[in-house]
Design a protein around this nucleic acid. Sequence first.
DNA 1: TTCATCGATACTTCTACGGTATCGCTCAAG
DNA 2: CTTGAGCGATACCGTAGAAGTATCGATGAA
Lengths: 277, 277
Amino acid sequence: MHYFIAVAEELHFGRAAQRLGIAQPPLSRAISQLERRLGAALLQRTSRSVTLTEAGTVLLHEGRVALDAVEAAEHRTRRAALAAAGEPSIVLATKAGASSQILAKLLHAYAAEPGSVRVDVMLCGPGEQVRLLRSGRADVAILHQPFDDTAGFDTEELLTEGQIAVLPAGHTLTTSEDLRLDDLTDVPDLPAPRWPGPDGTYAAGPGPEAQSHTQLLQLVALGRTLMTVLDSCRPQLGDDVVAVPIVDAPAVTTVIAWPPHSRIRAVADLVRTAVSL
Amino acid sequence: MHYFIAVAEELHFGRAAQRLGIAQPPLSRAISQLERRLGAALLQRTSRSVTLTEAGTVLLHEGRVALDAVEAAEHRTRRAALAAAGEPSIVLATKAGASSQILAKLLHAYAAEPGSVRVDVMLCGPGEQVRLLRSGRADVAILHQPFDDTAGFDTEELLTEGQIAVLPAGHTLTTSEDLRLDDLTDVPDLPAPRWPGPDGTYAAGPGPEAQSHTQLLQLVALGRTLMTVLDSCRPQLGDDVVAVPIVDAPAVTTVIAWPPHSRIRAVADLVRTAVSL
DNA sequence: TTCATCGATACTTCTACGGTATCGCTCAAG
DNA sequence: CTTGAGCGATACCGTAGAAGTATCGATGAA
């Protein structure tokens, strides 16, 4: 399964084998064996290129879900053992820099609840929370629709708000009362920043490389780029940047999400606290 | 994983090994190996009895989910390959004997839709639909809340209704206008029927053994037992039985459910047809 | 036409999983 | 108190299957 996902992602047996830390022949054999077991062609090999078949696309998707479920079983078991032995705790995953005051309020209110446990907050890059939740490394997460894929989780809505553009003070765009998405794409002197991918590398492009939101904010203040954030982030902005509403940006809903099978009481308590805020 | 689930269910290494078709020693080793890998005790062995630890309970639950996910990946891939090759179709799982006219309406309406595909209907025993859906053998199911566990599925509500008791014509209970649940438990001459478990055996008890709803209905007509069914099943009952509403039975909601990651267009079409009925 | 690239195949090595035999512990019956 | 049956753990052995090395065959670019 691991093997197939690696090949399906790389679309190249050699690179996939390298990534897996094995030689190429066993990988070829494993894949054709998998195909024989399933009775279905997963890849079309033309000795010059590898492409996914219909069935292969399905298996790539379902296989990821399955592997995440296996990994989640491991992690949750380990954490249950630790919780039974020592002090119980839960892990909350949230995107760094977003919904921070709703989170602060939530943590404060939950800590005051009777029977509350320690909450470890994991600050993640964009979209990473979903991965953590699926793989059992986190117990509950703060997600943002429609950016994050909430399929397969139970969720409760917490807040719906608009988005604002953060621009360098004095930039020509700041003269407008409000902006549209079109106004923000391909601004010559404010190219979109580039985030590191899951592998730690950056895509090519004109924008500056960013590792964190504070860093990015500084780059905006320096007039090197622009960023869009949620309405509720406005109080965190300094005087060296200007916030302008984006009228046609989709509304973002902040939700609290957890795995549907979660039997952890602390998660239920936390969610109850969140919805009653 | 298979091994651990077998032991956790049997709570007996010998029987679990027999069920798995292997000898007992490799099973013992596999489990202790798993425990070492996870760094957590899963079972408490007292050489006289085996019990689950906290962590073991979690792993039993999460492990089932994970195994189902793996099996689902297999099944869905096979079906995707078949669909790509020949005529596409979807599998709908439903409990035998319940919500049959809503199902008939749905199938009829869906068949009239443009682009509809063949729908294979699987009639299941109680609770079996959930298993089929989780393991990928079915693409969509008709479930009944609160009986079926819809956790982890996307659902749409179709109908909410009460339950009625089906009694032999002329029985003393049929003189009432309505009944309560208490009236129906431990009726001496109408003991509750016994259904076969997943292993095909029957629990001990006074009631008659039943294999199907029609068979059960016949047993009611013969004055041997009673049964409770949904309001909407009333038109299917003959003159030899009497239906009496149960006023304090929980309302049952019929829902259509599908896996949250389903990318199958036909499932989406079927759901859309169902909610528009 | 040649050569580089890439996946498949042939053959060998070794790990790891399963089977048999047996031990040690516990509880119940005599 | 003794003995034996039940049950899980351990020791040891054999084999199946997975990974590595070497090489082939096909394809497309120079």
